[in-house]
C-alpha cells in the first residue's frame, strides 16, 4: 500500500518535473496569496451565506438559526415588493445599467473611434479625459457639485445667457438622480476611452486599408471594421458596467453628502456601506447582499452571453 502510494507520488512528481527546491519555492511564494484567498473569499463568503440564515439574539449576544431559516430572505422580498424605500434601492441601482452600458459605453466607443482616426490633438484629449480616473472621487464629485450649486459657475453662465431662474440641480426628486447619472457619464467616459483606444491601436492598419479602398465612410468603418475587432474589450467594459448595479455608491454618496441620500438616490452598495458596522444587522445585511446578487448576477451573465454572440473574437 505504502509502496503504491510512493510510486504514484513519484509518477506525479515526474509529470510535473519538480525538484524538492522547486516545491519549497512554489509553496513559499504562493502561501500568502492562497491563504488570503481562502480567508477573504472562501471563508468570508461562506460565512456570509451561513449568517444570512441566522438572526441576532440580544440575550446571548450571538447569531442563532431561527425556526424559519429563510426569515431574512422573506423579509427582504417583502420589503422589496411592498416598501418603496427598499424597492427604490433596487430600482436606482438597476438604472445604472442603462446609464453605463447604454450611454457611457457607446459614447466612449464613438470618442475612441475618432481619437483612433487622428482627430487633431488626440494625445492631449486622451490625457485630459483620463484625469477623472486618477483623481479621488471625493474631490471630483465635490468639484462637480460645487459648479452646479446655487452660487456655482454653471448657474452664473446660465444667468449670463438669459436664463433667469436656473434649476436647483441637486434639489428635486427628478433632477437629483439625473444629475448623478450625468456625473457618472461625464466622469466615466475617460477610462473607457483609454482602454478602447489601446485596443483600437492594436488593429492592423491593413485591415482598415482594405475597407478604405472599398470606399466605406466613417460610420461603416466604425460599425463594420473597428467595433467587431475590439468587441472583446467592449464586452469586458459592458460586463464591468453591468457590475456597477451591485458596486456603485461613492458617486451618489459624495454628491448627496450622506449614505442615506436624499430624493431616493440610494443604491445596493450604499445601503451596505451605510450599515456595515451595525453588528446586530449582519444577518439581514448578508441576506440583503446575497439576494441582490441572486437578482442581478444572472442578468450580468446573460448580458455578457448575449454580447458575446454579436461578434466572434478574432486574433490579429
Amino acid at each position: 500500500m505504502e509502496n503504491a502510494k510512493g510510486k504514484e507520488r513519484k509518477i506525479r512528481k515526474r509529470k510535473y518535473n519538480l525538484s524538492a527546491g522547486a516545491i519549497v519555492f512554489i509553496c513559499v511564494l504562493l502561501a500568502y496569496p492562497v491563504i488570503h484567498f481562502l480567508i477573504t473569499w472562501v471563508y468570508i463568503n461562506s460565512q456570509t451565506i451561513a449568517l444570512s440564515f441566522t438572526r441576532y439574539n440580544p440575550v446571548v449576544n450571538d447569531y442563532q438559526i431561527p425556526n424559519d431559516i429563510f426569515y431574512n430572505y422573506k423579509m427582504w422580498i417583502d420589503r422589496f415588493l411592498h416598501d418603496e424605500r427598499y424597492s427604490s434601492i433596487l430600482w436606482n441601482s438597476a438604472l445604472y445599467i442603462p446609464v453605463t452600458c447604454g450611454i457611457t459605453l457607446p459614447l466612449s466607443v464613438v470618442c475612441s473611434y475618432f481619437l483612433y482616426k487622428d482627430v487633431p490633438g488626440k494625445n492631449f484629449f486622451k490625457v485630459i479625459y483620463f484625469l477623472p480616473s486618477i483623481l479621488p472621487v471625493v474631490v471630483l464629485t465635490m468639484a462637480f457639485r460645487l459648479g452646479f450649486d446655487t452660487f456655482g459657475w454653471v448657474n452664473a453662465l446660465l444667468r449670463a445667457i438669459g436664463v433667469e431662474n436656473p434649476p436647483i440641480w441637486f434639489g428635486t426628486k427628478i433632477l437629483t438622480p439625473a444629475m448623478i447619472f450625468f456625473y457618472c457619464v461625464w466622469a466615466g467616459i475617460g477610462y473607457n476611452v483609454v482602454l478602447l483606444s489601446g485596443a483600437m491601436a492594436r488593429i492592423p492598419r491593413e485591415l482598415v486599408e482594405v475597407g478604405r479602398l472599398e470606399g466605406i465612410n466613417f460610420t461603416q468603418e466604425m460599425t463594420k471594421v473597428v467595433i467587431p475587432l475590439v468587441w472583446p474589450t467592449i464586452v469586458t467594459l459592458f460586463t464591468v458596467g453591468m457590475n456597477t448595479v451591485l458596486t456603485i455608491y461613492l458617486q451618489a454618496y459624495f454628491l448627496m453628502g450622506s449614505a442615506e441620500g436624499n430624493f431616493n438616490t440610494g443604491t445596493i452598495a450604499m445601503y451596505l456601506f451605510g450599515n456595515y458596522s451595525n453588528q446586530q444587522q449582519v444577518p439581514q445585511l448578508a441576506a440583503f447582499g446575497l439576494l441582490c446578487s441572486l437578482i442581478f448576477v444572472p442578468f450580468i451573465f446573460l448580458g455578457r452571453k448575449i454580447m458575446n454572440h454579436f461578434f466572434k473574437e478574432v486574433d490579429y
Partner: peptide, 14 residues
C-alpha cells in the same frame, strides 16, 4: 468575475 455583495459586514466583523 463573480460579484458577491453583502460580505462587507462579515469582513468587518472578522
Amino acid at each position: 468575475v463573480v460579484p458577491i455583495v453583502g460580505s462587507l459586514p462579515v469582513m468587518y466583523r472578522f
